[in-house]
Design a protein around this nucleic acid. Sequence first.
DNA 1: CATTACAATGTAAACGTTTACATTTAAACG
DNA 2: CGTTTAAATGTAAACGTTTACATTGTAATG
Lengths: 338, 338
Amino acid sequence: MVSIKDVAKIAGVSIATVSRYLNSPDQVRENTRNKVEKAIKDTGYAPNTLARNFRRGKTHMIVVVVPSIGIPFFEAVMEGIWHVAEEQDYSILVRDTRYNTVDFDEFSKMIFSKEADGIILLSTLSPFTYDEQVLSGRKHPPIVLSCESVTSEMSQFPSVRIDNEAAAREATQYLISLGHKKIAFMKGRSDSTLTQGREQGYRRAMSDAKLPIEPDWLLEGQMSLEGARRSTRKLLHQSDRPTAVFCANDEMAMAAIHEIKTAGLKVPDDISIIGFDDIRFSEVMDPPLTTVAQPAEEIGERTMYRLCRAIEGKEIGQATETVPHKLVVRRSTAPPPG
Amino acid sequence: MVSIKDVAKIAGVSIATVSRYLNSPDQVRENTRNKVEKAIKDTGYAPNTLARNFRRGKTHMIVVVVPSIGIPFFEAVMEGIWHVAEEQDYSILVRDTRYNTVDFDEFSKMIFSKEADGIILLSTLSPFTYDEQVLSGRKHPPIVLSCESVTSEMSQFPSVRIDNEAAAREATQYLISLGHKKIAFMKGRSDSTLTQGREQGYRRAMSDAKLPIEPDWLLEGQMSLEGARRSTRKLLHQSDRPTAVFCANDEMAMAAIHEIKTAGLKVPDDISIIGFDDIRFSEVMDPPLTTVAQPAEEIGERTMYRLCRAIEGKEIGQATETVPHKLVVRRSTAPPPG
DNA sequence: CATTACAATGTAAACGTTTACATTTAAACG
DNA sequence: CGTTTAAATGTAAACGTTTACATTGTAATG
């Protein structure tokens, strides 16, 4: 492998000059510049990133931790992260946790061991593994939480998200305003703070409207097609079944609609469905899905910006940044039958 | 930042011993092992990956190049890649080309400059940027192509894929066997060899059955929801419109179904639709989508295995590995009306 | 107890950069 | 043309590991 030394020898200059040619070309005279350029071309030299990063003490890597690759909403967030990453010259390392909560130690160690310069968590951080000790005497590692709302213990991290509780409340209120009284809620994983926030909003809206919540109406959808299909089938067997279901994400809503129609019922005529996230497939579902839209790309961009600042040491705060959500009414919701 | 030196000093041993403790603990006596272990715990030392990788000359990184993040099929492939990567201790760096073809030089340089140990291309490699010169006197960089079929110039790379042409032919033949004669084909990007292969298969099936192909039946779907919706709307305005559409991926099929139903027509009663990939949403579409299934995860696994071998220098061949596809008949296809 | 053999540990070089500092070269000036 | 000054280049140390080789320690053997 050809190194800077070889280039220097061939160009008849010192390695420092070659290095300067690469990093601040205006510091080297045109004449030498040409010599070096030619040597590089002749040898096909490419600077060794490993050595360079080592020397500079910077990895230029960001780890993005997602519950699972293949979630359309997170992809949209990633898109935003990418924009900024590219602009700021970072590479993105995607880590899939397979829906497990994130062990803080595991990922903060990636910072201390210089595997990455910063971390974005789109997954839930498990509260109990957070260990003050690891940080003893150290600066906080640059970590930004995104999308997941933040429990109090975690408030020391900056984060970017919508107000899940308010959004869920609005969605539920919309169903109530249509005349629904028996409204079910399909949850995600219960260890997810995001799920908790949305459930909170649902409960709040129901109790504000003095509507009871039957235990049977809390459905476990696991955020997945399969989980949602199973629990929808169960729901349909209930004797006094709800007239509307609020699903904690669009994918579950999609599955719910499918099962309802398969059972010979109609959406929204028999059952109204409302989703969450506004993934790109929502619009082409049958019926097009009423859902809560999040500005996914913007969330990604803001998150990445804040991470960059944290890496530069400029972001000390733990401020939570809340971005606006929006209820998008399409055709999967209608007044209850009868 | 605490380094191996600090640990050594505190433990009262040499840095070599600490290094050995980390890399081959059985070479150090229990007594010393304990001292080192304690020192590490006390200092919170974490080996500097940057230095380590630099010294070892290995990045432990694999770059996976995708046309776009957020394509359900590729996510499934990635899942397979991940399995093997985890097992073999590689991290995955995802690069999104935004549907641009891949410049060979750009990515092979990542190998020479030690940004990554190997590359998996899920995107189309642009034939013309391939530059023999770059490789002059060098070993071929470890690159494996996946999913995209391979043009002759590229045959020097190992690859894993289904037989797109055969698969597309079968799908088309299936429509023909149902009695369809006017069959449209919705393409992806035309610079994609994958698209070309599928179009080839479609044409082949049609000509084998002595069926003509009207120019209007070649639809530009751009592999996206939006593109597919546009071209479907155009299709519906045709005077003598096809009775079936074969779409080069499921996402376009999804959009096509949506537009057809929006226009007041029925799938499959008025128009049959067949997709490609069998993404997880296919099953919950209305109607559930008839499609060509690819063993996505297996493709990912095999690709990654071959890349590992290429990195170890064991894979010299350029063999193309073909995995089996399968036509999955659901309910979006039926005999033509009348 | 001396000798041998092997295990455990230490020493120091090397990996390919960047960069502070020293030196040389060129330009500018009187 | 000598002197001053700034620009260009060179020298060498440093970054934190790993590892070949040298040294020391320990146990086993006669």
